[in-house]
Simulated scan of single mutants.
Amino acid sequence: MITVITSFRLSEPITREEARSLFLSKASTYRGVPGLLRKCYVLSEDGSAAGGVYLWRSRAEAEKMYTEHWKVLAQETFGAVPSVTYFESPVVVDNVMDQILSDE
Rank of each mutant, 00 (worst) to 15 (best):
M1F: 09
T3N: 04
V4G: 00
T6D: 05
T6Q: 09
S7R: 14
S7K: 11
F8G: 01
S11T: 06
S11R: 13
E17S: 05
A19I: 08
L22Y: 00
S25G: 11
S28H: 12
T29N: 09
L36A: 07
L37N: 01
R38C: 03
R38N: 07
K39G: 00
K39V: 03
Y41T: 00
Y41H: 03
Y41Q: 01
S44I: 03
E45M: 04
D46P: 03
G47R: 08
A49L: 08
A50K: 00
R57V: 02
S58E: 10
S58M: 06
S58L: 08
E61T: 07
M65E: 14
E68R: 15
V72L: 11
L73R: 15
G79L: 13
A80N: 11
V81P: 01
V84G: 00
V84M: 06
T85C: 06
Y86N: 01
Y86A: 01
F87M: 11
F87N: 08
E88R: 15
E88N: 14
S89H: 02
P90D: 11
V91N: 02
V93S: 12
V93W: 06
N95V: 09
M97N: 15
Q99N: 05
I100C: 06
S102F: 14
D103I: 06
E104Y: 15
